[in-house]
């Protein structure tokens, strides 16, 4: 039996989703996308998942359009499972817990779209990021044309989309496309450290912050401020908030339980 395309491991509040598919397929296979969607959904019901890391085996973020690219003449998807190959990134963006993409190889096309759907991105030195599709007559179809400009601004996004240029990790960091860069050997550790930093916070607070940020950006500032205020009052009913304040005043580390 073939190895599962998506695997999940969880330890100390940190969930790691690993894409086992190597690159060159043009896109995530429907099986892998389906599994990824199910995995993300499962994590949304799992209060113990405080942070999610998305990564792959070497080069797994690479889904360049060499192979079976979707074309106008392609038959319509016959099933939900087949259709979800095109919206794998939505599942990742739908994660309620904070997410980190560990970019261990080139993140191209759908690979980059998956990384853009994470909240934070850490790239290995030597990794390159870009969209190669437009130069081949295709366009992003898993959120790239929407998420990229929201992260780096429209001018830089169009530069990447229209030229197809691959950005080295350092340049990606300079324009805010990735949040941290690490030596390839240190990548895993750097991501783990970042995940632990976030996992040390209160899980409900982190989820509320994420919700306030993304929903707020789709609203006017006044509406966003109302949402933030209401979530912060809702948060006042949690035991973790009382624990956090008590721990601060007692000058000790808080013990958050996610309630």
């Amino acid at each position: 039996m073939a190895e599962k395309p998506v695997t999940l491991s969880q330890r100390n509040g940190i969930a790691v989703i690993r894409l086992r598919e190597a690159g060159g397929h043009g896109r995530l296979s429907p099986d892998a996308a389906w599994e990824l969607g199910r995995t993300c959904e499962r994590l949304n019901w799992d209060a113990s998942a405080r942070v999610v890391i998305l990564t792959g085996c070497a080069g797994a973020f690479r889904f360049d359009l060499e192979g079976e690219e979707p074309s106008a003449g392609a038959p319509l998807p016959r099933s939900n499972k087949e259709a979800c190959g095109g919206r794998a990134a939505s599942a990742v963006a739908g994660l309620k817990a904070p997410s980190i993409a560990a970019i261990n190889g080139d993140a191209l096309d759908q690979g980059l779209e998956l990384a853009l759907a994470c909240d934070l991105r850490v790239a290995a030195e030597g990794a390159r990021l870009g969209f190669t599709g437009v130069s081949k007559g295709a366009m992003p179809w898993d959120g790239g044309s929407q998420r990229l400009p929201r992260i780096v601004g429209p001018a830089r996004a169009l530069d990447m989309l229209l030229t197809g240029r691959l950005l080295p990790a350092g340049e990606a960091h300079a324009i805010g496309l990735v949040n941290r860069v690490a030596a390839p050997d240190d990548l895993q550790q750097a991501v783990q450290r970042l995940a632990e930093e976030i996992a040390a916070g209160a899980p409900i607070a982190s989820r509320f912050v994420k919700e306030a940020v993304y929903k707020g950006l789709d609203m006017s500032l006044d509406q966003g401020l109302n949402l933030e205020a209401d979530l912060s009052f809702l948060l006042q009913t949690t035991g973790d908030r009382r624990e956090g304040v008590r721990a601060f005043l007692e000058n000790r580390k808080p013990r958050f339980v996610g309630e």
Binding site: P98, D119, L120, R121, R150, I151, V152, G153, G176, N179, L194, E197, I198, A200, G201, A202, A205, S206, F208, V209, K210, A212, V213, Y214, G216, L217, L221, G224, L225, E228, A229, L231, S232, L235, T238, D240, R241, R242, E243, G244, V245, A247, F248, P254, F256
Partner: peptide
């Protein structure tokens, strides 16, 4: 968030608007 709280003076709205969602979340979550 490290203290079990969340911003309540607009931080979850003003930081992402000034820095973008990702850089904003970097500060807000860590």
């Amino acid at each position: 968030a490290r203290l079990g709280l969340m911003p309540a003076a607009g931080g979850s709205q003003t930081l992402p608007r000034s820095l973008g969602a990702s850089k904003g979340l970097d500060l807000l979550l860590t």
